[in-house]
Amino acid sequence: MATIDVQGLTKDFGETRAIDNLEFQVREGEIFGYLGPNGAGKTTTLRTLLGFLNPTAGTATVLGADIRDEAALREAKADIGYLPGELSFDEGITGQTFLDYQAELKGDDRLEDMLDLFHPPLDRKIREYSSGNRQMLGIIQTFMHDPDLVIMDEPTGGLDPLMQERLNTFLREERAAGLTIVFSSHILAEVRRVCDRVGIIRHGELVALETLETLLEKGGKRVRIATEEPIKDGAFDLEGVIDEERVGEELHFTFAGNYNDLLDRLAEYTIIDLEVEEPPLEEVFMHFYGENDE
């Protein structure tokens, strides 16, 4: 049985449909990336899965519990770790007091392990925490009770690159140990680094459900080339080149083809500047998942 099984899940806020007839499964032991631009419905999905919001239609099971069944879901929550996208604590207490309270509510079997990896100043009041420290405290509480399923809403926000990498490494190790992880993000690169499969949500609808390989193929890169001599028209007419445009002396395009072919062509020129970078998520949607209606 799937760890999370989403069946026609729909949630309206008044007139607005936040998520629309979602269907997907998260398998045991995988890291599932839940990708979409801000406002697409990621947080609504995750908060509905945790029972904070009542579905308008459809349902889901999480660790076998129907999310509409409060008692069943409550029992399942003993084995779920959750990291909210917008972390909010009682500001007047220390990190230690917060963790003590959480320990009473759900246990702290893995607290020591977590404190070895992440060390916010526990004796200080949370009010004085930097955003990185708050995020670390959030991550500690997510894993402290040794959950079987972890749901993280934009987990790397506020973390410096070093801590981000530490979190990613930790997630990979946990996956190897059998943990199932749902990881939402609006940043493609972030999802690429750790996820096995990716669900892409846009305007409340699931527009794609891909393995990481497929996503990498489709995602492409933004390429910017500046050369000493002018680039001839059609010089970069390679397979996988889209949206070619000249910006002054530079050539810009999105590239989803074979890098060796690209390098062969580049070798014919004297390169002054070259950038190959992640395209913004919206651009990926536009190119690979159809319409851009904004």
């Binding site: 904070f52 409060e70 008692a71 409550r74 929550k77 959480q102 509510l105 759900k106």
Partner: peptide
């Protein structure tokens, strides 16, 4: 309003 309730209700406690 602050979202603090999420960290409480994510634990196995009833509303």
């Amino acid at each position: 309003e602050t979202g603090r309730i999420d960290l409480l209700l994510a634990t196995p406690v009833s509303r």
